[in-house]
Write a protein that binds this DNA or RNA. Sequence first.
DNA 1: CTGTTAGCGCATTCAC
DNA 2: GTGAATGCGCTAACAG
Lengths: 351, 351
Amino acid sequence: MLPARVTIHDVARAAGVSVATVSKVANGRYGVAQNTIAKVSAVIDELGYETSLVARSLRSHRTNVIGILVAGFEPFSTELLKGISAAAVGSGYELLAYAGALTDEARVGWERRSLSRLAGTLVDAAIIVTPTVQVAGAPVPIVAIDPHTGLGDVPAVDTDNAEGARIATRYLISLGHRRIAHVRGRGDLQSALLREQGYRESLAEAGIAFDPDLVREGAYWGKPTTRAAQELLSLPDRPTAIFAANDLSAVRVLDVAREMGIRVPEELSIVGFDNVPESATSTPQLTTVAQPLHDMGAQALQMVVQMLRRGELEQQYVHLPAHLVVRQSTAPAPSPAAIADAQSRAASQAV
Amino acid sequence: MLPARVTIHDVARAAGVSVATVSKVANGRYGVAQNTIAKVSAVIDELGYETSLVARSLRSHRTNVIGILVAGFEPFSTELLKGISAAAVGSGYELLAYAGALTDEARVGWERRSLSRLAGTLVDAAIIVTPTVQVAGAPVPIVAIDPHTGLGDVPAVDTDNAEGARIATRYLISLGHRRIAHVRGRGDLQSALLREQGYRESLAEAGIAFDPDLVREGAYWGKPTTRAAQELLSLPDRPTAIFAANDLSAVRVLDVAREMGIRVPEELSIVGFDNVPESATSTPQLTTVAQPLHDMGAQALQMVVQMLRRGELEQQYVHLPAHLVVRQSTAPAPSPAAIADAQSRAASQAV
DNA sequence: CTGTTAGCGCATTCAC
DNA sequence: GTGAATGCGCTAACAG
């Protein structure tokens, strides 16, 4: 049988005082005799009493905990968590991360839902990770990380997505690639648009004509990306490089290439985006555009704490730079002869 | 100014009904007229009302959320989180991860403290990550992952630490190493003891005398590990391989070796433990003993859900196997001649 | 069918 | 210094 939780009443009864007195000593308030304090403290220790976060927050509307609202715990959000956690040490605040999009009904609108459920009661402030809808009018200070709706009226921190994409594409061009495909992210998300835009700009910059056939939607995750990669790699005039909108899809492209017998990076170069630690665990290791995820998390935490302490924020919007991390999934473009050779080999195999 | 949270009262007033009715509609209870449902639902949508997790849990003692109690968000706990999160999709439960050891006073005893604060009200059950104290007598079902106190009376899932250490050490021996050092984990933790034990057993197995001078405490983290590595690598008869108790310390050893100008893996082989994704991002990539962290998380979630549903658990204790992941930080032991040469080079440099 | 009543565990007045 | 009363937002039991 599960033992019941020890409440303030249990402590009061055991110590022979009223619940109000227990509350005072538990919270270090004035107006209690030394003797009483000692007695009650002893009982608290003995019974292992801790105030319930729930009851306390309902009453006092202050908990000293900062909420982090995520859809689920995956490589991207957990990297942010690491940065937030490191920055929170010694801040006096505790952290509560809530995954609110795990059930089917909650897949859309989880941001608002989670916020309503937690804010104003459980958490003093919130950091929302990758919200896909506008979340204005919260009852507590909030900061968004990588808001997918673009800048709204909530303070936010994000990475320069367009510049990151430009860097990736320029790098591929510098390697001699000309047929560079793009597996883009979810079309309804700002970051996906910006990354595609950066890709196009770099192409234009280098005087390479944009070929709509080389852009497919991968929606940032496995299933659609697999399809996109298969289509791209089955093209008669197959691309020699693919810039994927994030690491997750880049790794998928890698898998598809392997299944199709296409060697990376010899026959195909691949660049991802995000630089989650997993991007280094693939074979070959992924070349990718790094978002400073830990820094982004730390920044968000500092902003939220500043709002909590000062009520105001110096800078509403923090835009961090991206940079390229070159690993092993990229190489100089194969020569036209090599391409023709590979194609004919593939064709003969297919027969 | 922050807008106030919209409560059930606001909805009731706006819809012209009692709060009880709103509660019924919001929770889909029977006994409300169609008309009323429609009207109240409309107001709920319009106002964007969501029941407060806090208030609801205080009243009904059931929230449909499972708590995950961690000290902080770092590579180890977040890997577990990923596994738990993936397993929770479609389970009908939401996840709340609480980092309770971020402030200084809470560094010790955070498990019990967090549990008291959340359990019995906020969460229906809890998964505790790496508790360092016994946590019996909780008011809700709990499962421990990697309990550092050894098996108590709480259900748990962990990895075969001793066997993992044996595998790592045997591998180094098979590479020809004879002077194999060990940077052990926190001496008060079960896992550290078991890993050292496995290390010693493999040594004995191969007929290699145990040298107490080759074992130093790294306590699983950076600072002490740096010292331990410096001492080990300054030994007159320096080890040719180091088995570190976890990846974090293994990477530290790598850093120290680099600073001291010792080449890895040519002059020194290093093996870690855990296989957190970060272990693949080091240069060279770390050879390590993999704990199936995602599986462990998923298992723990399933156990907790089973307890919630059935009240009972089939298997109180799940012990998962470890396996070796060979990457680039290990190589055959250098020949005695090579060692002598390197030592003399170093000596002449020091002068 | 709907509203009223009574707590859930706690912190905060305000009397005593 | 201390205790009894009150209410935080909500749901369950009951009364109307």
